[in-house]
Every structure is written in C-alpha cells, then in structure tokens.
C-alpha cells in the first residue's frame, strides 16, 4: 500500500519537532528514576497525562512529599493553556467525525497544536490524516524515550544544552504562525507580557501573556 501524501508530510514535519523532545524526555525519565517513586508510577504519566511539564511537576512535587491537592492543582495549572488550543480548534474539529472529536484532543500538546494549526485550511480528511500521523509519531517516540531515560539516564552531555532546542523549536513554530501584521502584534504583546510576569509561579505567565497577545491581535486587526 503506498503511503498517503498527508501521512508522508506529517512524518516529514514531525521529525525536526521530535529532535529537541528527545533530551527533554530523557531528562524526565532520569528525574523519575532518581525520585523515590516507583518507575512504573512515574512513567504512567507519559500516557495518562501526555504532557511533559505537567508530568514533571507531578513527579517532582509528589516526590518532595507535597499533598495530593497541591500536586493536582500545580499539575493542572501548568496545563491551562490547553483550553486555548481547544477553543482555537473547535471550528476545525466541528467538521470532523465524532470518533475523531473524542480521540483527537488527547494528542493536543503544544507541538501538535503548533504544527497542525498551519494546516487547518486543508480538507477535513487531509487534516485528520496529518493530525493523526503527527500525534501518533509524537506519542510513540515520547513513551519510548521517557522509558529509555528511566533505564539509561543522561546519554547527552549537559554542556551541549540540548534543552535549549525546545525554546528554539518554538521560535521556528512562532515565525510560521506569524502570517499577518495583527499576528505579529499579538506575538510581540504576548512575549512582552510573559517576560514581565516571569516571576509568577507555575509558568502561569504563559496564560497571561497569551491573553494579552490575543487582545492585542484583535485590537490591531480592527485598525
């Protein structure tokens, strides 16, 4: 069976996105291995949560002996930006079959949103194939790499600073998302407000910055 064009495109696009994720997943696996938690309990978060920063938050806080309510609250606060992804994709998913509306959101991580939001004008079938290809590829690599980190620990020397590839990756995705002047205004405002609120715990500044950016984008588009 020939590989479908959308599947091929999905694999081609997801590979550069996966590169910076590998060191992050290895570090996460190492953090689980070094915590007093059983490896299986820590690793389960990779599939149950499927979100690295929230998983790391839960592992770190519960290993430090934080109370259940505090761990859950901190983990959920880290994830609040997913409300925005869900809202942004609501019109896109409206044209999709119901099974996909249930399955698709599970894969809706930062990278998934960034890559697939560039393809929302594709025909629904095409978008769905692309979305599932990117999501499944990411999911499989994520599960495997966190498990690998549990077993082998850090294979990448720290002085390479490969974790810096993660913000760099989002710079690349950001430039792709800036497709108009209001979008540029939105990005600048969001970056500035996030910078000003870096001291706010649990990376809540991301949400504050994003709201400021959306407001600025709408304001700029009405001029």
């Amino acid at each position: 069976m020939p590989i479908h064009t959308d599947v091929r495109r999905g694999i081609r696009d997801v590979i550069p996105v996966l590169v910076p994720v590998v060191p992050f997943a290895l570090v996460l696996g190492l953090a689980i291995a070094e915590s007093p938690l059983p490896n299986l309990v820590g690793w389960l978060g990779s599939s149950l949560i499927f979100g690295g920063s929230a998983q790391l938050t839960v592992v770190t806080l519960s290993a430090e002996g934080a109370g259940l309510a505090a761990v859950v609250a901190a983990g959920l606060v880290v994830q609040t930006r997913h409300f925005m992804y869900s809202a942004a994709f609501a019109p896109v998913f409206a044209g999709q079959p119901s099974w996909f509306r249930w399955l698709g959101p599970y894969f809706l991580i930062d990278q998934q949103f960034a890559l697939t939001s560039l393809r929302v004008d594709d025909p629904p079938d095409s978008f769905r194939r692309y979305y599932l290809t990117v999501g499944l590829a990411f999911w499989v690599v994520w599960q495997a790499t966190v498990a690998l980190g549990l077993v082998v620990g850090p294979v990448v020397p720290g002085e390479w600073s490969l974790d810096f590839a993660v913000p760099l990756l989002f710079v690349g995705l950001l430039t792709a998302a800036i497709d108009s002047r209001p979008a540029l205004v939105a990005a600048v405002a969001a970056g500035a407000v996030t910078w000003a609120t870096l001291g706010v715990p649990n990376r809540l500044g991301i949400v504050l910055g994003a709201f400021a950016g959306i407001a600025a984008g709408v304001g700029a588009s009405r001029r």
Binding site: F93, G191, L198, I206, I214, G217
Partner: peptide
C-alpha cells in the same frame, strides 16, 4: 462548540491564539 457556529468576533480572536501562545512559550521556556 462542535456543532455550533462561533461568532465572527470569537473566530477572529482565535486566529491569534497560535502566535500568542508560541511567543509566550518562547519567552517562558527560554
């Protein structure tokens, strides 16, 4: 919102979710 039409103003606002969140992530992670 699956089976509902969004007001045009909301649709317009949602177009700026991607650039805003990406910029916020760059600053926060970087």
């Amino acid at each position: 919102l699956a089976d509902r039409d969004l007001p045009p103003a909301v649709r317009e606002a949602l177009r700026y979710v991607a650039p805003s969140v990406m910029a916020a992530l760059v600053v926060s992670l970087g």
